[in-house]
Design a binder for these strands. Structure first.
Lengths: 210, 210
DNA sequence: ACTAACTTACTGTCTGGTCAGTTACTTGCT
DNA sequence: AGCAAGTAACTGACCAGACAGTAAGTTAGT
């Protein structure tokens, strides 16, 4: 996106923060926290390094802001979906995983890699992510499984471990898309992966015995 | 391991490389490539920074050596297992995943996180890992699935995507163990996860229809 | 003319890499 | 066996480059 203006720069106080966050997410996701230079982030956002410091206190604050800002919309979207549903559990699980596949393909998909990679360097952020994302998400899926079991739709499985198996393929897809996919021949089809996973998973959970 | 010798240091040319590699793996795994300081690696290995340079050319070479050295034994172990087996496909899959669970719990389990995190900064390494580990592993599992389908043991599924679903839970376990597990209350039971996953997966693959 | 958004040139610190010097161990000579 | 003389493993102080953060100066907009 080239500047449509002939002048050297424009004052755009309102638009800057989001642009900086987007640039930072991209840089952090491809290089990691320590290896990204703030000058690159600034360049990507179409500003100079100094300007960046008008909007964020420093590198760490920027990093945390990126994670929080990118995360919140997705969390709410997924939880809203689950709260209002009342049909069969298999269908709920299907909707949830397809929505998750959508998240994987979006900007938000870069976060898991980022958090996993930097968990050792940012204990506070790691705990935040663990509590507000992982545990919340796993609890949500666990509740669906328990609901299905209680209703006689699913077999009685070890729910605490099964939730891991439910999210793993999509999560791995998110990591793949943001690391090794670039070196592979063809891009991964996240929706197709979700459907194959659902096919296997729902059969694996099915309660009917002949 | 404290030095049993009272003197300041000992000449131990033969033992150094492995000790340095072990120290480097630990540091890289918890901090990432850019954030680990060679002085820390040296300290962990019980030597000074200068000595490190007698054994490795620089930080990048050390990093690649860590990955290669940690990887090769595990690859061979898993492939040997698959090559000689001739029983039912479900049992082969079971053995393979339980072996994989063992790898996850070992030092090698730190590698996926490392490679995923640094893929953007080390294109050569990423391609090496993609070709020699990922593709090889997926091909192996794909072959088992196709074998099961051909023998009428498994349903006809989309093999290319299903292999992802087969490895995802264990791989995610490896990532978990090396990032967020430290902040969780209890350690994850990898073997239990593998068993639950196998239970779900094998039911999902089963060919019998009532 | 005024001000706030923005830039640019600068500083201090941190760390990868080097190298001159030190010390453990070995070898050969008596 | 004892003891230089030699050598290779190892150290630690140092240097150069890179980069986070700063602040004085410049320009767009009102």
């Amino acid at each position: 996106m080239p500047t449509p203006h002939p002048s050297r720069w424009r004052r755009r106080k309102a638009a800057r923060p989001d642009e900086i966050l987007a640039a930072a997410l991209a840089s952090f996701a491809e290089r990691g926290f320590a290896a990204t230079r703030l000058e690159d982030v600034a360049g990507r956002a179409g500003i100079s390094k100094g300007t960046l410091y008008l909007y964020f206190k420093g590198k760490e604050e920027l990093f945390e802001a990126v994670v929080r800002a990118t995360l919140l919309p997705s969390i709410e979207r997924v939880e809203a979906l689950a709260a209002t549903f009342e049909g069969p559990s298999a269908q709920l699980l299907e909707r949830l995983l397809l929505a998750f596949a959508g998240v994987v393909d979006s900007r938000t998909g870069a976060l898991p890699k980022l958090v996993i990679a930097e968990a050792g360097n940012f204990p506070d952020l790691a705990r935040f992510y663990l509590n507000e994302v992982i545990r919340r998400g796993l609890r949500l899926i666990g509740a669906i499984l328990r609901r299905g079991i209680a209703r006689g739709e699913f077999r009685a499985v070890d729910v605490d471990h099964a939730v891991f198996c439910v999210v793993a393929p999509m999560l791995l897809g998110a990591l793949w898309k943001n690391s090794l996919e670039a070196y592979d021949d063809a891009p991964m089809d996240t929706q197709a992966l979700a459907r194959v996973h659902l096919d296997l998973l729902l059969r694996g959970l099915e309660a009917h015995r002949p």
